[in-house]
Write a protein that binds this DNA or RNA. Structure first.
Lengths: 359, 359
DNA sequence: CTGTTAGCGCCTTCAT
DNA sequence: ATGAAGGCGCTAACAG
């Protein structure tokens, strides 16, 4: 009644236990005939190797951890898709994914993880440009990959959004619609100060692309709530009354921006075009109008993160293997929040909006 | 340099390895003095038991799986909070949580899981009233708990939203504001047909509460997208022009409902009050106006789900332990989408009686 | 190409 | 209250 063990398979196939092991791992050439007998025995018995024993004996488990800091921004759909993508890819490669929600004290967490012997490696999410976990993991000798990218990704397996391309695509979209002045509403200042990769990279990319497409550009960080979004929009408009295009990478702020636009009697996309950067469809479809979005390929990135790690884990130490960075740009999904700017770029004064009926 | 093992601790504390084991597990009384020596040695060496060896020897791992079917509705914030809550509670109880995204073929998945010996038990999410996984897990002898509840939760550890209370609270909120006729927009018909617990239970609760508070009540399922929401709202209004209160348990449909309301020149909460049921703050704050919500205590439920399972796992088989159902109602968070109905309830005009009123 | 033999690090029944 | 010893189920040298 108990689960069959390897020795049961061995007996049934008339071979030694180790032969079964080798047949399974492929670490040794097995003659086709014995291999077939073994596989048959396995099937007949419904044998499944015990992962604990396997890990213990080989000194390497088939479990990887997903290190998920609960950031102040909280976990969003995109993070969730990273996670499910990673779990899925891991499973396909014969591994399990344990969810490790790192509230703080990352150092201790990471140490504890590998000491238990349960975890063979880790996938990091919410990566900072100078992520404190990198030296920690290196010192602990724990293999890891990242979904995200530090400042210097050298020697690290990374799967990340291609922000260069994404930023450029966002600006290009607006520029081609005819917008001559655009603004970028970023994550909060505190995110910036802790050097959150996406915030920094997206801003740089937009700035560069604005230059390339010769559109005036301004940017600012913004608190992660709708009130901050409203305020930011108002300030932006004071600074640049001729603003018509807005890129936002801050879902909560987006709510406020849309409110503010409505409040001054303007509308989207008639008066302002709004493009959401790196938000998932699930979120941007909730807005009215539905937002034109640069939508991250989150599942794919999650998969890549897991694959890179597991690949590294499976590479024998004597083999040379160069860690790689996989960059995937966001996909531009044009919805209802972007269109041509209101007036052709004539330097005429802006018409002061009168009282507006908002129904 | 390698991790210290139990025998290292034993030597340092001048005891036998087994004594260390017992000191750690508490399965035996250890004299205070030796215990202290052992603990000191453990601390000094930075010893951490190897989970693989521990699991192998004791025939019980400290890993539980979270079975997360990727439903057509997709994973939302609430599901994510279930997951993080469960992971957190598991960790606090010395366990790890592996994420098992069950795409289909649940049977095989579940079997594969426990055979590996890695998983000591499972936590089920997205529970159906007649969940196919229950007999599967029972037959396989895998302990499990649920976040959600089947039709007959007898003998099963469940942590679920208290829909009775939640539905009542929603109706009460609207009734006390003065609404006399309310509608409930549920999940999609296909969800209903597969007997998704929340859909069924919430509907029943609202119906009952409507009677209790003497408000006319109608309900219908609704596709999981904004177009369906719009259509549903229009139909609802045709059927019941005097409708003023709407409860919705379908975020995507909510988008459409709000659009539809706006489109007919009405506004929220002036003309219609909208209450979102079992949606997370993260979602309902994205709407304009921000939605009055019955917000699930998702993290707590996730924690409970994990605790119940682990508790069961830790109960020796000879002990009697009654599986329990923990029900937590959603919290009413009043925001900007609900208020008194437009016209005071004057019994002047006799609106063409529709056939919908409930009792 | 296959078999034999030690462990991997811990738990747990026996003994004492 | 503590030791000693035999596995848990598998892998990975060694042999042949």
């Amino acid at each position: 009644m108990a689960n069959p063990r390897m020795i049961d398979v061995a007996r049934r196939a008339n071979v030694a236990p180790s032969t079964v092991s080798y047949a399974l791992s492929g670490q040794r050439t097995i003659s086709p005939s014995t291999r077939k007998r073994i596989l048959r025995a396995i099937a007949e018995l419904g044998y499944k190797p015990n992962e604990l024993a396997r890990g213990l004996a080989s000194r390497r488990s088939r479990v990887v951890a997903l290190l998920l800091p609960e950031s102040q921004r909280g976990i969003g759909f995109t993070e969730m898709e990273f996670a499910t993508g990673a779990a899925q890819a891991a499973k396909e490669l014969g591994h399990q994914l344990v969810l490790s929600v790192t509230n703080s004290n990352t150092a201790g967490q990471v140490e504890a993880l590998n000491k238990g012997g349960l975890i063979a490696g880790a996938i990091l999410m919410e990566v900072r440009l100078d992520d404190e976990r990198i030296p920690l993991l290196r010192n602990a000798g724990i293999p890891f990959s990242m979904i995200g990218r530090p400042r210097d990704p050298d020697g690290i397996d990374c799967a990340d959004i291609d922000f260069d391309q994404t930023g450029r695509d966002a600006v290009e979209h607006l520029a081609k619609l005819g917008h001559r002045k655009i603004a970028f509403l970023n994550h909060s200042a505190s995110e910036m100060s802790t050097a959150y990769g996406p915030s920094v990279r997206a801003a740089a990319a937009l700035r560069r692309a604005a230059e390339e497409f010769s559109v005036a550009y301004l940017e600012r960080p913004c608190g992660e709530d709708s009130e901050s979004g409203e305020a930011a929009f108002r300030e932006l408009l004071e600074t640049a009354p001729d603003l018509t295009g807005i890129a936002i990478m801050n879902d909560r702020a987006t709510v406020g921006v849309l409110s503010a636009i409505e409040r001054i009697g303007a509308s989207v996309p008639r008066d302002f075009s709004v493009v959401s950067i790196a938000s998932s469809t699930r979120v941007t479809e909730m807005f009215r109008p539905k937002l034109t979005t640069l939508e991250p390929q989150a599942i794919e990135l999650g998969q890549m993160g897991a694959r890179l790690l597991i690949e590294a884990l499976q590479t024998p130490p004597d083999l040379e293997r160069e860690p790689a960075s996989v960059l995937l740009p966001c996909r531009l999904v044009v919805r209802d929040s972007s269109g041509p700017p209101p007036a052709p770029p004539t330097p005429a004064p802006a018409p002061a909006p009168t009282s507006i009926s908002n129904v």
